[in-house]
Design a protein around this nucleic acid. Structure first.
Lengths: 234, 234
DNA sequence: ACGATCGTTCGGCGCGCGCCGAACGGTTCC
DNA sequence: GGAACCGTTCGGCGCGCGCCGAACGATCGT
């Protein structure tokens, strides 16, 4: 009669349907591991309260824990959970219907705001992520008009850069992740994660402090210009 | 400090985090309008209880209501809500190796028809939807290997059939929806909805009873063979 | 050794929520 | 008109959940 998935659907959403737990999941969207104490301070509740919340989130499979000494590190279980939280968050962000007029690549990269980039779980977001995504689209490496997928040229582009694209499980090679500051899609999925990792490994950008913000290095600006035609702000 | 979307995320998931409301949303995934009484019987609760649930779901923007006489018809607000429920359901389903075996003959024939073809909100799912999606992929109309998008040939294919693809808002032209019986992706999005509507309008398939199951007509079999090379889909 | 820090467990408190049945207003059909 | 039906509102009930503080164990630093 009723769908057998009903109780699981209710249980899953019930796991997120608490402001404290929701705050934890959103904080963990940066893809890094947080300690229980950090999350407790971040959410503004007692440590004992948050301990119980973490227990539920781990038991529910949304988080994985990693004990080191007297610390309990916790992170999102996998990319699927990150995508789930992203999807829910994208739905709930205000003004979803507003689509801004597309700016030219020159405008978007000349402002200097590209320095304001950040990671979203395991891929690049913020102005940096959007600029890269839009440059890839304009160069025919990515197509967004009929879905969201890499073109053959795009796959070749990753190969030329020596970035491996291993398809693990069911995770899509390319998928759109909606940025909540710019409200525009940026590249996520296996390709987005690989590109982000390469950008950090190759020194194209570096993390700023303990936040999820990243900054483009001079070498990174050269690389982005060479490979994507993105003119670095000077 | 904490993400401003936190309370909205908790509120949204809290709206779904109830077995009765979750059962309603899953039932409404067929894209049709249900009366309050039907949903009450389906969920197995008193009419008064369900009335309050509907009030919350409507107030929360997940459902829209339509009063006709002494009936209160309710349906999913839009495709975004349908996608949200689909995403959550897709997350919660794949773990289930426990697929209940139908017991009675009536159940088995009903589930068989559902597996063969059915609608998922506004697009085709089940074996029929997957077969069509696979055929489109093999013919180069759709690509799944690097994301999920129509190819230029695919866009032309819709044009040749006289199926209009209007880009409304930000709904993607093509997107994958995971089928829960076959556990394979099938075409959703604007293109999926347009194809489903065309299939019903042109008599390629007809609805069976009041469920969401659909059956391919002889004329539909000919059309699927002619346009996609599908031989006798069952 | 010591204190400091981190996390967990446990009792207890209070609020909120889902549920029902009874009563009521509105609509349809005879 | 009356009867049957659909949906809503309103008490009232009970359970569950989130929260805290206090106590405890475990770990790290000195």
């Amino acid at each position: 009669m009723t769908d057998p998935a009903t109780p699981r659907l209710a249980a899953l959403t019930g796991l997120i349907a608490d402001e404290t737990r929701a705050a934890c999941l959103l904080a963990l969207l940066d893809g890094r591991a947080w300690t229980a104490g950090e999350l407790a301070r971040h959410a503004g509740v007692a440590a004992s309260t948050l301990s119980e919340h973490l227990g539920k989130l781990v038991a529910g499979g949304l988080l994985t824990e990693e004990r080191q000494g007297r610390h309990r590190y916790v992170r999102l279980a996998d990319a699927r959970v990150a995508q789930l939280v992203e999807d829910l968050t994208a739905y709930v962000r205000p003004g979803g219907a507003a689509v801004r007029a597309p700016r030219t690549l020159r405008e978007s990269s000349a402002s200097g705001a590209m320095a304001r980039g950040r990671t979203c779980y395991d891929h690049l977001a913020g102005h940096l992520g959007i600029t890269i995504t839009r440059a890839m689209t304009e160069r025919g490496l990515l197509r967004q008009d009929a879905g969201f997928a890499l073109t053959d040229e795009g796959i070749g582009w990753f190969g030329e850069l020596g970035i491996g694209l291993e398809r693990t499980g069911r995770r899509p090679l390319a998928r759109a992740c909606l940025d909540w500051t710019e409200r525009r899609p940026h590249l996520a999925g296996v390709a987005g994660a690989a590109l982000c990792r390469h950008a950090l490994d190759a020194g194209w950008c570096v993390r700023i402090g303990t936040e999820r913000a990243v900054k483009v290095t001079p070498a990174g600006a050269l690389a982005l210009d060479a490979h994507l035609g993105i003119v670095a702000p000077r």
